[in-house]
């Protein structure tokens, strides 16, 4: 019978309860090797510091004679993973906003909502509080981005290199005013 008892005991010993703990959001935790929050945070931090210290951008702002206004355009994801670029773009936007180096205007998704509401106000709001048409601020620069990844696989090993590039382009001249790039290379062994 000992074999039976050993088996039962063995199974019981390996049983453990599920635990949940809160960790510091800045703490890097890598599980599968895919893109995760740590990568998004790294990209945001790198891009913010590159923009804040960019001589080309400072020169542009000086020539313009005022704080440039930025609108977020298209971020293209050419990787094989469904990555939500908003995770780092929102951090990037917030840093721009808080550092006062530029103004931000709403991008198309939210802008359309504002226009709908403004149209409603024309009919239903008190004229004294009604938002006026034609007062939107035109952006000077548009933010674009692209993410690519190169993967090399052999047996149970995988190397993935993620390249995230952001750039600011002048609305009138199409000239690129600023570039930021961050690479993250991962080596995963199954």
């Amino acid at each position: 019978m000992r074999i039976v008892y050993c088996l039962l005991l063995g199974l019981l010993l390996t049983a453990c309860a599920q635990t949940v703990s809160r960790v510091d959001p800045g703490q890097p935790i890598d599980l599968s090797g895919r893109w995760n929050d740590t990568d998004s945070r790294q990209v945001a931090e790198k891009m913010i510091s590159e923009l804040l210290n960019s001589p080309r951008y400072k020169e542009y702002a000086k020539e313009l004679g005022k704080r440039p206004t930025i609108i977020v355009g298209l971020i293209r994801n050419r990787t094989s993973e469904h990555i939500d670029a908003n995770a780092y773009i929102k951090k990037f936007e917030m840093a721009i906003f808080n550092s006062n180096i530029a103004d931000l205007v709403e991008s198309d998704t939210f802008r359309d909502k504002l226009r709908e509401e403004r149209a409603q106000q024309q009919d239903f709001a008190d004229p004294a509080t009604m938002a006026q048409w034609g007062k939107e601020v035109g952006a000077n620069l548009m933010l674009f981005g692209e993410m690519t990844s190169e993967t090399d696989v052999m047996n149970k090993q995988r190397v993935v290199n993620y390249i995230t590039t952001l750039f600011l382009t002048d609305m009138e001249s199409n000239k690129r005013v600023w570039y930021g790039q961050h690479e993250i290379k991962k080596y995963i062994r199954k």
Binding site: V4, L7, L8, L11, L12, T14, A15, Q18
Partner: peptide, 12 residues
Amino acid sequence: RMNYLNEAASYL
């Protein structure tokens, strides 16, 4: 989550 008692009982 695996119920280890049931799992063990399944062996018997």
